[in-house]
């Protein structure tokens, strides 16, 4: 393999991961827009999405609903998005919205606590919840070559799905009336209410979208690595938050760009640096830190507290 091949191969892997990170980062940005909170439990919704899919799969197996793999995959995604989305809305109402007007420190503590609660609930409630959980093989296996670059079918599907979800979110936020309400609330909540926007409903919908999209990322992650675990949300939370901040918190496109950038950084570090595989995240976070020191507003942000 030439250097260029390696570069391309890593870019593809990095893009895959990056899309996943983008999906998580979008939630951070949306929540920050409508509620001015940073929801540190968000990474655990990513984890929850994966576990909801596992649970739904176990149920399907138990009742003998195996059928067509495509149908099962669709069922897992839709089902998990709905369940995770509902948990997202319920927790928003119970403990995120009530602290959104309090000092940042309070919402920070509450959302961190919420994340731990979700994590531990999964560990305790899911059968043998402390162990890594294997993901079923439902996607076509095998791969094809483009030149010297190997592309696995499974990854291609996951990638396509991620892109589709990102485009759907973008459409929802920027092209629909519901999205206009979300953007209006992000820019000026009181003015949005004066236009007849139901603030509480809009916040609910935002959390529904944010958690459902994180669930998609969680399932993608499960298929990609072939397994998941109750504690993967903490790291993903930090990555998603970093990606959102790199992009300029509050900016949807920024979150997408930030996520992809983080994914690329990580895979290049793993491939190119000595001991890279073990330290890829150290390297990626180092770049994030340096980046924020020199450009604290993020790539697309005009100011750090920019809105959607």
């Amino acid at each position: 393999m030439t250097f260029l091949d390696i570069l391309l191969q890593q870019s593809i892997n990095g893009l895959m991961l990056g899309i996943m990170y983008s999906l998580v980062a979008v939630g951070f940005t949306l929540y920050f827009g409508v509620l001015d909170v940073i929801n540190f439990a968000h990474g655990d919704f990513f984890m929850l999405g994966g576990f909801m899919a596992l649970m739904l799969y176990a149920i399907a197996e138990a009742v003998g609903f195996a059928g067509n793999a495509l149908v099962v995959v669709i069922y897992l995604f839709i089902g998990s998005m709905i369940l995770t989305g509902v948990v997202g809305v319920v927790t928003e109402r119970v403990c995120v919205k009530p602290v959104s007007k309090a000092p940042m420190l309070i919402s920070l503590l509450v959302t961190l606590g919420l994340g731990i609660a979700i994590r531990e609930a999964v560990r305790v409630l899911y059968p043998r919840g402390s162990d890594p959980k294997g993901f079923p093989t439902l996607m076509p296996q095998g791969s094809f070559n483009v030149g010297n670059i190997v592309i696995r079918y499974e990854n291609l599907i996951i990638f396509g799905l991620g892109i589709a979800v990102i485009m759907a979110v973008n459409f929802l936020i920027n092209r629909t009336k519901m999205g206009a309400a979300i953007r209006a609330v992000a820019q000026d909540g009181e003015a949005a209410m004066m236009m007849g926007v139901d603030l509480d409903r809009t916040i609910d919908i935002t959390f529904l979208i944010g958690s459902a999209v994180a669930a998609v990322a969680g399932i993608m992650n499960g298929f990609y690595y072939g397994q998941t675990m109750f504690n993967i949300g903490a790291m993903m939370g930090v990555i998603g938050f970093s990606a959102a901040v790199i992009g300029g918190l509050g900016n949807i496109y920024g979150a997408i760009v930030g996520g992809i950038l983080f994914g690329l950084l990580e895979t290049f570090a793993a491939a190119a640096l000595p001991y890279g595989a073990e330290n890829k995240r150290v390297f990626a976070f180092l770049i994030v830190i340096l980046f924020l020191v020199f450009r604290p507003t993020g790539i697309l942000g005009e100011k750090i507290f920019e809105r959607v």
Partner: peptide
């Protein structure tokens, strides 16, 4: 609730204009 009042047919031009700056 504000949105209900507005739906009755009251509209406001608020102090300081309060337009949506990014739209």
């Amino acid at each position: 609730k504000t949105h209900r009042v507005v739906r009755r047919g009251i509209s406001i031009v608020p102090e300081g204009k309060r337009i949506f700056p990014k739209m």
